[in-house]
Write a protein that binds this DNA or RNA. Structure first.
Lengths: 238, 238
DNA sequence: CGAAAAAAATGACTTTTATCAGTTTTGAGG
DNA sequence: CCTCAAAACTGATAAAAGTCATTTTTTTCG
């Protein structure tokens, strides 16, 4: 598949406000802008592969990308799902290690690539930017600690409920008193997020549906009763 | 319990070489040194609590400390075990959030406390130090991603084997062709590391023992057959 | 539009692991 | 050295979740 480039100026990027680049001085932003390459990806294309060396930073301008690890049997575990404004692959870049995960496009995406050198230059010149990146990384790490504990001690039902609420927070679109999770996830992907088998997710989703907690809307899920879902997630009873 | 202080000079600290402070210029190291408070803790004492705000950085000079989260039912999940030279509580400090975990002494410990201001001052003045901290945080995050995937898709037996090998790498003491894990962990703590029930750990450990993979030495575990243990962990067969 | 492939769903069955209840062993402190 | 409590261990049982096989539905694309 040929790479389809597109063009955009960082200062005019509609997602700048959601990005770590927000607040960067014009000079540094233009340095980023002048060195970046912007590419359009189709669903299913890979951005980077586990085991390869990062050569720069990806910055999401559109679409959704899953970042996941494959285990020996080929089972996926999705670490996170990147949306416009998010950085992609910065962990391995900053620790100067190989990628430990693979990134694949879930919904057609526009992604800008900033070469390692330009990113590091701006990072080193700009302590405030560095501080914000560090804060973001450490915040991210806190989320992972949370996930670890959740994975260790919660049931699949609880984890599914918790993850639906999390997806609702991040990708939710409000509408007629409920929230649509604006993310076309397959049951298999949802299972890879929760850390369980596809069949189990299917069964639990239909339970949640018959209990009136959620509804299906095409490939998407609508959260009808977030509070009841939270009860399922929090093990208040069990 | 009264706090027992002790005194040590950073430049003479035997664990400096294992620490992120290693390579710091004398001026900055003396700034750290002049502002630190060093305290001795007994087994069972807490260093900090989940939900409180960090006021500085802890730097381990002796002993072992577990950092863990409690779930609703009071079940622990141990995120990591800190040893001399390690920083403690830097994640929440850097992201300027509350502690998300609690730290409790496993083996009598000597820990130096560096006030937030001094740490940040050195961090901001010293880009190279900042870079090393960022690298360390990002490396740590990679380990967590690994753990997440492991927790999601490996069986308890596999996880126990993997964690024994990990503990061997970090706390191992070589001796007569095998390695002693120099860490007095209760079965309960080991279960909290693996993310399972105490009884399950006990059963699996005695299986590993009867298969000749490990041996018990007082409260400690000796790894006899790391390769066979790795086979158990890696799901090469299953 | 229609055929083929992919995804979702359902059912039966098995395995893993948690839980509970009880016993034995160990270790700390008087 | 003895007592008591905590930790380690054992066994039985139940629940949760994975796996496999099969069907139904949806999607893709020639």
């Amino acid at each position: 598949m040929a790479k389809v480039e597109f063009n955009i100026v960082c200062t005019l990027c509609e997602h700048l406000k959601d990005s770590l680049f927000n607040g960067l001085n014009p000079e540094d932003l233009s340095r980023i802008n002048n060195h970046k390459t912007c590419i359009q990806y189709k669903k299913g294309q890979n951005i980077f592969y586990e085991g390869t060396r990062p050569t720069g930073l990806y910055c999401m301008n559109g679409g959704k990308v899953k970042v996941y690890k494959n285990n020996v049997q080929g089972k996926e575990f999705i670490i996170y799902i990147a949306k416009p404004g998010d950085f992609l692959g910065y962990r391995a870049l900053l620790s100067e290690e190989f990628y430990q995960a693979t990134a694949t496009v879930l919904e057609d995406a526009k992604i800008c690539f900033i070469p390692k050198e330009s990113f590091f230059e701006v990072l080193q010149k700009n302590p405030l930017f560095m501080k914000r990146v560090v804060q973001a990384v450490c915040h991210e790490m806190g989320i992972m600690e949370e996930k670890l504990a959740e994975l260790a001690h919660k049931s699949v039902r609880e984890r599914l409920a918790a993850n639906l609420l999390m997806l609702k927070e991040t990708y939710g679109m409000e509408g007629d008193g409920s929230t649509l999770i604006d993310l076309a996830l397959s049951r298999e992907d949802l299972a890879s997020i929760v850390g369980t088998a596809t069949e189990t997710v299917i069964r639990l989703l239909s339970e949640f549906k018959s209990e009136g907690l959620i509804a299906f809307e095409g490939k998407k899920i609508r959260v009808l009763e977030p509070k009841k879902l939270a009860k399922q997630a929090d093990l208040i009873i069990a």
